[in-house]
Each structure stands twice: as structure tokens, then as C-alpha cells.
Computed example of a mutant assay.
Amino acid sequence: MLKHLYFWAALLWTGTIAFFCLVQLNNVPLGTVSNLDKLVHAFFHFVLTFFCFLFLKSRANDPNSLKPLIASFLFSVFFGIGIEIAQELFTTTRHAEVFDVLANLSGATLMVAVVILFGLNTKLR
């Protein structure tokens, strides 16, 4: 039952990222935080990596395997790169940025560190 919940959470979060990264957001007030969009990118991929990890971990045969964590990290990073390419190719209001990819990578890496530091790889099942 939980693996279905994790699957839908990961899928909905992936769709949320795609939506917010591909639509025009010029009229959204962002406040005065510098580089807020980079923090948002990092947050998006922090959560995406976690949801994917939960789903893949729930399906893993070996509870101590690092494969779900590695696969979640790679999915998040490559999805982020794909979104940046889509912004450049398919939108007129958004453009690909290397710093967005680095923010995505930072968020995914931070989640991997959290999983390892808190031992979530062995605690969650």
C-alpha cells in the first residue's frame, strides 16, 4: 500500500516541477531574497529525490541496498537537466541555466546526504 502512495507522491511532485519550470511566471512576486529561484530548484529536487527514494526503497529486495538511493539521485539530476533543455527548446519565456542544474544537483545531493547521515537507507522499508 505504501509503495502506491510513494509512487503517486513522486509522480505528482515530478509533474509539479515540470509545470512550474515550464510555465511563464513573470507576474509572481518573489520578494527580495537573492537567488530565490535557485533555492526553489534545490528544494524541488531535494523533495523529488526523497519521494523517488521512498518509492524505490519500498520495492527493493535488499533492505540495505544503495541502489534505490543512487537511482533516485540520478533520476532527479537527469530530470532536472531534461527540464532545462525543455525550457530552452520549447518555451519562449524560460531559458536553460547552468546554475539551475547546479541548484538541482545540490538539492539531490543534500537529500542523499540526509539519507546517509540519518541512516534512512536502513531504517525505512
Rank of each mutant, 00 (worst) to 15 (best):
L2T: 00
L5I: 15
F7N: 00
W8P: 00
W8I: 05
A10E: 03
G15W: 00
G15F: 07
T16M: 12
T16K: 00
F19M: 01
F20K: 02
F20P: 03
F20A: 06
V23F: 05
V23W: 02
V23I: 15
Q24D: 15
Q24C: 03
L25G: 13
L25C: 04
N26L: 02
N27M: 08
N27K: 09
V28M: 10
P29F: 07
G31Q: 03
V33P: 02
N35S: 13
K38V: 08
L39S: 06
L39A: 11
V40Y: 10
H41V: 10
H41L: 08
A42G: 11
A42S: 15
A42N: 09
H45P: 04
V47T: 14
L48Q: 11
C52E: 02
F53K: 12
L54Q: 15
F55C: 05
L56R: 13
K57Q: 13
S58N: 11
R59E: 12
A60T: 14
D62Q: 11
K67P: 00
P68F: 11
L69P: 01
I70L: 12
S72H: 09
S72P: 07
F73P: 03
L74M: 13
L74P: 01
V77D: 06
F78Q: 03
F78E: 04
G80I: 08
I81Y: 09
I81V: 14
I81E: 02
Q87S: 01
Q87H: 01
Q87W: 02
E88W: 00
E88G: 01
L89F: 07
L89R: 12
T91W: 07
T91K: 06
T91G: 06
T92F: 08
T93E: 07
V101L: 05
A103N: 05
A103P: 03
S106D: 04
T109S: 15
T109I: 03
V115Q: 13
V115P: 06
F118M: 14
G119N: 14
G119H: 14
N121M: 09
N121Q: 15
N121P: 10
T122H: 14
K123Y: 14
K123N: 13
K123F: 12
K123C: 09
L124H: 13
